[in-house]
Design a protein around this nucleic acid. Structure first.
Lengths: 342, 342
DNA sequence: CATATTTTTGTAAACGTTGCCAGAACGCAA
DNA sequence: TTGCGTTCTGGCAACGTTTACAAAAATATG
């Protein structure tokens, strides 16, 4: 390995001059600067980032933690984080937990051990160190921003959407297009965000004077398969619903498949609304009505927040709530209803 | 920041003893060991990974570079890399290039500058340093494994599937189920793998005595949208094909959508075969016949290869070719054909 | 040309670990 | 108690940078 000392020797200068040539070239006489650059070129010197980081207080690196990289919803957020990060001069390291606390803690430790400066957390798990300090009512043990989800009692900057209101909007849409027997397929209830969406469902039903029947609330785990099997359960009910609100698009896609397998039509026999606005949803058959989460803004805002924290700029907001949006496509039967009205 | 020296002072021992307590606890007397551990506990000491890495030759970290994290095909491979990596004791950092040479070089430099030990490269771009050494006929400048794609003239371990044979198999399947007017939607031709798939298409056609007409070969860019627009172009042809082989599943999904928008049926009017076996393909409507790439094995093999390189174990194979598999679902009309035969 | 001022350079001390080496403490036998 | 072999421990030099500070060189001023 060629070091700064080798370059210094070759160029006939001191190591300080080499370092300066790299860090602030204006501060060194052109003649020496050229000699140094030439030596660097000749010997193919690349500064050892580890050694640099040992000296420098900050590394301009952040870690983004995702439960599952293969989930397009998360990967879209990651993508927008990446874009802003590069613009701000950070490198982004992505870590995947697959729901395992152990892996999450592993990545979190990369921050305490100074490999990265801060953490953006997607998903619902918290690093144990964070949980511990929260319990003790102490300040955060590291620069941290939560995207997607927030925690009651955790005083940590976060960027979210209003899941209660969004779910409510989805269900209200089903009600507006004339459905009354509305079921819901929920996500794993350990996520507070799933509880919120269920609350939104209830709230819309109650306000419309509708009562969810027993069996209309089935739980899935966000996977296509779970949506499929949850829907099969709904279809066997004696009082079969005529619409379903799914807590994410993947389950909605699985549900649509199940409906069509049983020879029923969408939206004729069953209207569907999903959540997330996955790319694939627009190409499902029929195209999926859904709630759009602003993945771009989520990622961008999270990145800007962590940047602010790392540079001790005051955060304008501890809690940012972004706007969601109802995307109406064919699966909810809005068109059909309009047609029959005329 | 609490350092090893703080712990040494608190526990009344030397820094060496603290370090040893952490590295090889058996080598230190229980009494001191306990004192040290207690101090660590009390002061919440976490070793500075950067400093450790400066001393240690190896960091047990690898970088996986992906063109696009949101592409489920890549993210599935990443997932299996992660699994094996954790088992082997590596940490995995994921970098996304979005097709930009500059970002790729950036991550590659993390290896030359010792942040990570090696690189697994998915996709078709090569780091400039690698390209340079290859041109010059020199050995690789860093431990590197290619997954998905290999390069003529680049003597680098890689794990791939036989894209020519796989594409050929897909097209032969269409021929077997009775189609003769078979078109193809290709990926971006900068990828050698797309050229391979096109070659497989040609080869199957020629062997069956079929001649692709002008206009039957349209190019896409692997996105759903491009599959959609490519299919619209195919549908406008005077001699409309009755089957299409798409170079990946996302384009196939876009293509199916376009067909149905035009009021045509799948597989009746148009049979479709995709490539990759994305999770979503099985839930498309109709479910997509496709070529399954063994994403798990791809990732696992790549990870084991880089591990071998990093530990100077001789690689059993420089070039691993994994088996592909035809997955027959409804979109290619195999069932219908069977039915009409009986 | 001497002196004062500014600019450029080099020396050396960090940064937080690890691990070699020498020496201290211990255990055991005589 | 002494001597000897083992086991533990501590001091200190790395690892490759950056940067404060002092020293040297260049430039300006009279």
């Amino acid at each position: 390995m060629v070091t700064i000392r080798d370059i210094a020797k070759r160029a006939g200068v001191s190591v300080a001059t080499v370092s300066r040539t790299l860090r602030e070239p204006e501060a060194v006489r052109p003649a020496k600067r050229d000699a140094v650059n030439q030596a660097i070129e000749e010997m193919k010197y690349v500064p050892n980032a580890i050694a640099q980081q040992l000296r420098r207080p900050r590394h301009e690196a952040i870690i983004v933690i995702v439960p599952e990289i293969a989930n397009p919803f998360f990967s879209e957020i990651v993508q927008s984080i990446e874009n802003v990060a590069h613009e701000l001069g950070y490198r982004v390291l992505i870590g995947e937990t697959q729901g395992k606390q152990e892996r999450l803690d592993y990545y979190a430790e990369m921050v305490t051990s100074r490999v990265a400066d801060g953490l953006i957390l997607l998903g619902s798990l918290l690093p144990s160190v964070v949980r511990a300090t929260v319990k003790a009512g102490k300040p955060l043990p590291m620069p941290l921003v939560l995207a997607c989800e927030s925690y009651a009692g955790l005083n940590c900057p976060h960027v979210v959407i209003d899941n209660v209101a969004a779910a409510k909007l989805a269900v209200q849409h089903l009600i507006e297009v004339g459905r009354k027997k509305i079921a819901t397929i929920t996500g794993p209830m350990v996520n507070s965000l799933c509880a919120d969406r269920l609350r939104g469902y209830h709230s819309a039903m109650v306000e419309a004077g509708l009562t969810p029947e027993a069996g209309w609330i089935v739980d899935g785990d966000f996977s296509i398969e779970s949506g499929h099997s949850a829907m099969l359960r709904l279809l066997e009910l004696e009082s079969r619903p005529d619409a379903v609100f799914c807590a994410n698009d993947e389950m909605a896609i699985g549900a649509q498949q199940a409906i069509q397998e049983k020879g029923l039509t969408i939206p004729g026999d069953m209207a569907i609304v999903g959540f997330d606005d996955l790319r694939f949803g627009a190409y499902a058959s029929p195209p999926l009505t859904t709630i759009r989460q602003p993945t771009n803004e989520l990622g961008e805002t999270a990145m800007r927040m962590i940047d602010a924290m790392l540079h001790d700029k005051p955060l304008t907001e501890q809690s940012v709530v972004l706007a969601h949006q109802l995307i109406v496509r064919r699966s909810s039967g809005a068109q059909e209803r309009l047609a029959s009205n005329k």
